[in-house]
């Protein structure tokens, strides 16, 4: 993770990060306007590559596919509009339908990248605590799913690879896929039971109502206030049609961790380190 982003996530608590991620998802979800969507996409891509580089290029391919499929579906399903660009007996492509298709495509892609950030930054404990305070059973299902899905994927790929050594029959068709799935689920149950035992051992079954109190520092309140102000101003400005300003505020919100980290870096470099930390190596190590 980029050091500026890391600085932000280290200095803020899990609830602030959760609120930031919800705001990013909200932005990706709400604004359906090409200029705004492109601006959001650029900010999201920048943030994603800085936060988690490993899966970035896989998601790029995936988001291209999502974008193309959405645009094509929109062109087929929505053929309204007067400025005809191209038409056959069954398909009419208009400027409006292309515009609409691209907007939808970008919205889906933005949503995908917003969840990419969510996946990279959210901590199981935060979601679990939020869920547990509302409804305990959902929290258990959540935790088992979080633990379970990667294990099922792992068991599936291992079983598929190892079965080549067990049987010489080529696994093709629905029947063999169903057999494999049944097999995988059978194997996964044991893992499931172990996780369930662990939950018991950790005392979740007898847990008290109040789970994990989160400590808020000054920076948390500042970030939450900034996020709130941006969302409110976006709502007001969207009605007035000030798209450029909304685009700027959205980019600011998405890049908030980097900007905050950057300000902290500058403060540390030019003030904090000079006034509070000695340059002596021994003292630095000691501190």
């Amino acid at each position: 993770m980029n050091s500026l982003a890391l600085n932000f996530f280290k200095r803020t608590n899990s609830v602030t990060v959760f609120i930031y991620l919800l705001a990013v998802i909200l932005i990706a979800l709400l604004f359906k306007q090409i200029f705004l969507s492109v601006a959001t996409l650029i900010a999201l891509l920048l943030m994603s590559i800085l936060v988690r580089r490993e899966k970035f290029f896989t998601y790029i391919k995936f988001s291209c596919v999502i974008f193309i499929v959405t645009v094509i579906f929109n062109l087929i399903l929505n053929q309204r509009g007067n400025n005809v660009l191209w038409s056959t007996s069954f398909l009419k492509i208009t400027t409006e339908s292309v515009n609409n298709g691209i907007t939808f495509g970008l919205s889906f892609v933005n949503l995908l990248w917003a969840f990419y950030l969510y996946d990279a930054l959210i901590r199981v404990k935060t979601v679990f605590e939020l869920l547990a305070s509302v409804f305990k059973s959902i929290a258990i299902i959540f935790i088992l799913t979080i633990q379970f899905i990667p294990k099922i994927v792992n068991i599936f790929s291992e079983t598929k690879a190892i079965q080549k050594f067990r049987t010489q029959k080529k696994a093709t068709g629905i029947k063999s896929s169903m057999d494999l799935t049944e097999n995988v689920l059978n194997k996964a149950i044991a893992n499931f039971m172990n996780v369930s035992d662990t939950l018991i051992l950790r005392g979740f079954h007898s847990c008290q109502k109040r789970l994990g109190k989160v400590e808020f520092k000054q920076i948390d309140w500042q970030i939450i206030t900034i996020i709130g102000l941006i969302l409110v101003s976006d709502g007001i400005l969207f009605q007035t049609g000030n798209i450029k300003f909304i685009a700027l505020t959205n980019i600011f919100l998405i890049l908030l961790p980097i900007l905050t980290g950057g300000i902290n870096r500058l403060w540390w470099k030019f003030y904090g380190s000079k006034t509070t930390v000695s340059d002596t190596t021994t003292v630095k190590n000691y501190r």
């Binding site: 950790r202 005392g203 847990c207 109502k209 994990g212």
Partner: peptide, 11 residues
């Protein structure tokens, strides 16, 4: 988080 989870469960 794991250690905190155990303690949170005990209130």
């Amino acid at each position: 988080d794991e250690l905190k989870f155990v303690l949170d469960n005990q209130g």
